[in-house]
Simulated assay, not measured.
Amino acid sequence: MRKVALKVAYIGTDFHGFQRQPDVNTVENELINALKSADLIDNLKDSGYAIAGRTDRGVHALGNVISFRTPEDVVINQINDQLPQSIRILAKAGVPFGFKPRYAKSRHYRYVIAGKEDLDLDKMEEASKILEGTHDYSNFSKRSERNPIRTIDEIKVSKKDNILIIDVIGESFLWNMVRKIASVLFLAGNDDMSIDDVRKFLGPSGNASITPMPPEGLILMDTVYQDVKFKYDDYAREKFLKALGEEYLYNGTIASVEKVMMDGLGE
């Protein structure tokens, strides 16, 4: 018997989130079925199956993590053969039997905003530094959170071509926390919020309401553990790159069609 951790990538567009649910298609449903089809697990409880975290409907990942015990040798592409192209196992690592994927050293989320050219990046950077550190993030999640204290190690705002990128790194996050951080930074950069307003969101006071940015712009880039080194599979990475390329071309075509239709209505 051995215990293995797998790094999972997926395009979240067509899934009802990560967590398994009856009667709807989720990433986890597909993963569990693939592990069973590959004869790696039989009973979830007996295998000690566990996950690093749940992502919402529409959210994507390059580095979510699952773990389980199995008597079999784990071959990444035998699992991938049982999965749709939009989900890939990218890497694996042998881990101790006490390993729990939920307790990561750090998580890296990236939020992507396309097509907005006139944002004040300097102001966004200033606002991001206010949100770094250890704070009460009650206003960035549900008010009913038992422990709203979290530590953000780094927030980085950058731009590549016409794409704004917000990287957020920390040990753990509240539900919707990253998307609400992205929303506050976007409002600051769009001059719809002052730096003083950003400061007021930290702490438990007030009844602040922050609308999270849409889930489709969020990517779980990586989940990192102390003393765990994942070995990536080159073939699996190439296959997922191909799937991403096909999705990009498809969405680009749809966007172009919609633009032409909008232009036609405006004539």
Rank of each mutant, 00 (worst) to 15 (best):
136 D>E: 14
169 I>V: 15
103 Y>F: 15
51 I>L: 08
80 N>C: 00
180 K>T: 04
163 I>D: 06
141 S>I: 12
22 P>C: 05
63 G>H: 04
1 M>H: 05
136 D>N: 15
159 K>H: 03
115 G>F: 11
189 G>C: 12
134 T>N: 12
67 S>F: 02
220 L>K: 01
233 D>L: 01
199 R>V: 04
26 T>Q: 07
54 R>D: 13
189 G>N: 06
130 I>A: 11
244 L>D: 00
208 A>G: 07
244 L>P: 02
93 A>K: 02
206 G>F: 13
35 L>T: 03
52 A>R: 08
241 L>R: 12
217 G>E: 02
214 P>A: 11
196 D>G: 02
177 M>K: 02
130 I>M: 05
59 V>M: 10
183 S>G: 14
55 T>G: 03
225 Y>K: 05
232 Y>I: 03
107 R>G: 00
229 K>C: 00
11 I>Y: 04
92 K>A: 13
29 N>F: 01
7 K>N: 04
185 L>A: 10
158 S>V: 07
26 T>Y: 01
88 R>T: 04
88 R>A: 08
224 V>Y: 03
261 M>R: 06
264 G>E: 05
208 A>T: 03
50 A>D: 15
13 T>V: 08
145 E>Q: 10
20 R>W: 07
119 L>V: 08
188 A>G: 02
82 Q>P: 00
175 W>V: 11
111 Y>C: 08
192 D>M: 13
249 L>W: 12
75 V>R: 02
67 S>Q: 11
228 V>W: 08
23 D>F: 12
53 G>E: 13
188 A>E: 01
119 L>A: 07
138 S>Q: 09
50 A>G: 12
199 R>A: 08
257 V>T: 06
50 A>P: 02
230 F>E: 06
124 M>Y: 11
133 G>C: 13
19 Q>I: 04
257 V>Y: 13
150 R>Y: 11
52 A>V: 11
254 I>E: 01
180 K>S: 04
164 L>T: 01
257 V>E: 06
111 Y>V: 09
162 N>Q: 14
14 D>N: 14
155 I>R: 00
254 I>Q: 06
218 L>K: 12
67 S>G: 11
79 I>M: 01
92 K>D: 13
43 N>F: 09
87 I>S: 00
170 G>I: 09
42 D>P: 00
222 D>W: 03
237 R>Y: 01
76 I>Q: 01
38 A>T: 06
125 E>D: 14
149 I>W: 10
246 E>S: 04
147 N>I: 11
149 I>A: 06
132 E>C: 05
7 K>E: 14
171 E>Q: 15
139 N>D: 14
265 L>F: 14
32 I>D: 07
253 T>G: 07
82 Q>E: 15
220 L>R: 05
51 I>Y: 04
40 L>V: 10
19 Q>L: 02
103 Y>D: 14
199 R>H: 06
201 F>Y: 15
37 S>D: 14
49 Y>H: 07
73 D>E: 15
109 Y>R: 00
63 G>P: 03
32 I>L: 15
122 D>M: 07
